[in-house]
Design a protein around this nucleic acid. Sequence first.
DNA 1: CAAAGTTCCTGCGAGC
DNA 2: TGCTCGCAGGAACTTT
Length: 292
Amino acid sequence: MPELPEVETVRRGLLPAMEDARILKVEARRPDLRFPLPKDFVKRLTGKTVTSLGRRAKYLLADLSSGEVLLMHLGMSGSFRVENSGKSQTPGEFHYPRGDGKHDHVIFSMSSGYTVIFNDPRRFGFMKLIPRERLEEEPHLKPLGPEPLGNRFDAETFAQSLQGKKTSLKAALSDQRIVAGLGNIYVCEALHRAHLSPKRRASTLADRKGRPNEMTKALADAIRFVLNEAIKQGGSSLRDHRQTTGELGYFQHHFRVYDREGTACSTPGCRGKIRRIVQTGRSTFYCPVCQR
DNA sequence: CAAAGTTCCTGCGAGC
DNA sequence: TGCTCGCAGGAACTTT
């Protein structure tokens, strides 16, 4: 669930606690998340300073004074919370944990005075330590396509990667090699805003030479727009977190199609109704009238 | 019950 | 004909 805007929101929320702060203590309360924690995990982190906290697609990267990078992924249910003198706050108001502490798996005590707690009920998240000079070869990062909000993503490169693809636009946008960081929610939202059907062949967004057309530009713009809006709103709080009592992200109030099956399409003048279909095993929400 | 992100596996069909 | 490749679909991991 955490897609690019949620991960970016988490990153910003963690900055005051982590950036330029030393890790005084690490507690790993279980030996594994999705994968076993790295060997000597606690030892390799303790006493090190986080020199910067970055993001690539849905991954967080903490640069350490030891020359290693702590790579973190939230999986589907991972969250961080930041605590200080008994009070807790959410990083960027995203993903407030249930508060039972039951799934608090990794705890960092920082020299900033904050404690950073990684909570992940479903344990699809993971943490990994990588020497900085080997970041290029990291198997999780290597296949990733351009950052949608970065300079290397534009209609030209987008068209080139869609050229000749027989797969649907939904599948193409979900493919992290084409553009990195979108998940089910923002794929649906971007396609709706670009008025393009999730079932449309990806290759129709490039000409024979792989050049962009109006649709390519519209979709690239819609992707950037929807991600920027979501980041402004502090991300989305997701359906299986709706019972939580803490601060939430607000972007879900801006969903135009996601989880809105049967509701009227919000496109001005459109009389369509939002439909749900299943593509490559996942729900797709779209308007069959204004998305072509 | 299905939902989420990622990776891996199988099987189909198109095209060479 | 037989091979490779792209793509679809499903399984797996886990919990509410």
